[in-house]
Simulated assay, not measured.
Amino acid sequence: MSQAFMKAVKERRSFYGLSKEQIVSQARIQEIVDDAVKYSPTAFNSQSARVVVLLAEQSDKLWNITKETLRKIVPEDRFASTEERINGFSSGYGTILFFEDQSVVEEMQMQFALYADNFPIWSNQSSAMLQFVIWTAFVQEGLGASLQHYNPLIDQEVVKEWGLPAQWKLIAQMPFGKPTSTPGEKAIYSVSERVKYFT
């Protein structure tokens, strides 16, 4: 295993301080996302992942949708902290939306009925691997990112705004950009309590 890969894995953290300064070209961002979608593993090679990349004003639009959706349900006296958090995500250069195409999942359930109950689980696991690949690749480019989950609250608005298929289920949102702050120390629990070896 290359040292560069493990270094990137160790350095992948949640960066909440971001700026809109473009430090990676759009072409490179597209190359990372396209390769991650093509080569991240999926159960039965189902390739159910769908990704939407929102840059600049399009990303701002997503976080405005999120903010206004939350404004309707968060008590007014507690909204200031929510708004500050959302503004932090909006301060980045872009946002990646991760979806899973439910029509693919349902087709796999029909094709392989014996495993039908597992395909939604495997779909989520595949999405998580894709998220990790992109997140880690971004670290190697000097980008900061975090993973957010405002679904299903914003699902309908997102599908409507960008004209996406109704079968695409929103899984997560990844705001990214140039890091403007450093994450704090990460607590790591004892590996001896989490891993067992038998020889």
Rank of each mutant, 00 (worst) to 15 (best):
G17I: 02
N118S: 15
S25P: 15
V158W: 05
D60E: 14
K160M: 00
N124C: 11
S181D: 07
D155M: 03
S46K: 07
Y115S: 01
Q47D: 06
L54V: 03
P120C: 09
K7R: 06
D60G: 05
M129L: 14
Q22A: 09
I32N: 06
N124G: 14
L70E: 04
E141H: 05
I171M: 15
P179W: 11
T69A: 15
N118M: 13
K61M: 09
W122D: 03
A128Y: 07
S25A: 10
M110T: 01
A43E: 03
V53E: 02
V53C: 14
F5Y: 08
Y150K: 04
E106M: 02
L54T: 00
F98I: 09
L114C: 04
S14W: 00
F99T: 03
D77Y: 07
K160H: 04
S25R: 03
W162V: 06
D155T: 02
S14V: 01
E68Q: 14
Y189C: 12
R13H: 08
K10I: 00
F176W: 09
A128I: 01
A49Q: 10
R28T: 12
L70C: 11
G184T: 00
Q173V: 08
V159D: 03
R194C: 13
D35N: 12
E68H: 14
L55M: 15
L70H: 00
A49R: 05
L114R: 09
V33N: 01
P75V: 02
A128S: 11
S146V: 09
S91D: 03
F198W: 15
N87H: 13
K186A: 14
R194I: 04
R71N: 13
Y115N: 00
F112D: 02
S123F: 02
Q140M: 01
Q47H: 07
Q58S: 15
S48L: 05
K72H: 13
S40W: 00
W63F: 05
P183I: 00
K72T: 12
I23Q: 12
T42K: 02
V52T: 08
W135D: 14
E11A: 06
K186E: 14
S14D: 07
S25M: 10
K67T: 01
A145F: 06
V9S: 03
N45K: 06
Y115A: 00
Y39E: 03
V104L: 01
S46F: 10
T180P: 13
S103C: 06
F132G: 12
T82V: 05
K7Q: 12
S14M: 04
Q26N: 14
E21P: 10
G17T: 04
I29K: 05
